[in-house]
Amino acid sequence: MTDAAPSARHPGAALRMLAILRDLVRRPSGAVGLTLVLGHALLALLSPWLVPHDVTAVSALSMLGQPDALHWLGTDHLGRDIFSRVLMGGREAIWITGIATPLAVMWGGLVGIWFGLVGGRTDDVLMRIVDAFLALPWILKMLVLIVTFGTGDLVLIPTLAFFYGIPVIRIARAATHDVVARDYVQAARARGHRRLDIIVRELLPNVRDALLVEGAMRWSWMLLAFSSLSFLGFGVSPPTPDWGLMIADARGFMSFAPWGVLGPVIALSSLIIGINLTADALARTLGIDRAQKAPV
C-alpha cells in the first residue's frame, strides 16, 4: 500500500503530476478506469456532432422499435433514437457533477483543515453538527431542496456541492490531525505564522493527496446520486436525454422492449465503474488506504 511514486517527494507540481499519472496508467485498474473516464468525457464533449439522429425528434411511426440498421439500439416509447440519446445522455450528469465535485471537495476540505487545526471546543461542536447532518439520508435532504427550489443546474450544483462537502470535512479533519502534530507545523507556529499561512503552506500540501482520492470517490457517489434523482423524476427534466431518466422511461416497456434499458444501463455503469477503478488506483498510487471507508 505504501508504494508511492519515488518522485512524489520532489518539488515541482507538474513533474509530480506526471509521475503520478505514469504510475496510475501502469496499474491495470488505473489504465482501464482512466480509459473509461476519458472516453466518456470525450464522448460527452463531442456527442452533439456525433449523434446520427435528433435526440428529441419524436416519431409516432417508429415507437418502441427493435434495433436495426437505422436505429442501432432501437427506439423508445416516443420513437426517439435510443443510440443517439445514450450518446448524449451523460452530458448533463457529467457537467453538473463535474462542477459540483471540486466545489464540494474545496469547501469541505478547507473547513475540515481549519477545524482540524483549531481543535478544542469549536471542533467538538462542529463535529456534532456534521454528525447530525450525516444522520439524515442524502436523498431526503436533496429531495426537499429540489422540490422547493426546482431542478435547474443552479439548484442542483450548489445542493450537491453542499451536501457532498460535509463528509469531506471529516476526511480533511482526520488527515489534518495526522499532520498537525508534526515538527514543521509546530515550527511554523513557533515562527508566529498566521493560521491561514499555516493552512496554505504547511497543511494543504500534505492533505492534498487525501482530498484528491476523496474527490474521485465523491464524484462517483455524486453521479450515483444524480442519476438516482433523475430516475426518480427529480433530476434532469425531459426531453433532455439522461441515462437515469431513460432507464425510468424504458422500464415500463421492459417486458416487450427490453433493449430500451440496456444502452443507458451499460453507459451509466461503465462510467461509474471507470471512476471507481481510477479512484482505487489513485489511492494505491498515492499510498492512501481507503479500504476501511464506507460511503456516507
Binding site: 442519476s227 430516475f231 432507464i247 425510468a248 434499458v261 465503474i273
Partner: peptide, 23 residues
Amino acid sequence: AIFAMTIPEFVTATVLILVFSIW
C-alpha cells in the same frame, strides 16, 4: 463486489427484474 457496490441500485434492480422476472 466492485460491480455490486458501484452500479446504482436502480440499475441493479432493473437488470434483476429483466432477468428474473421478465425473462
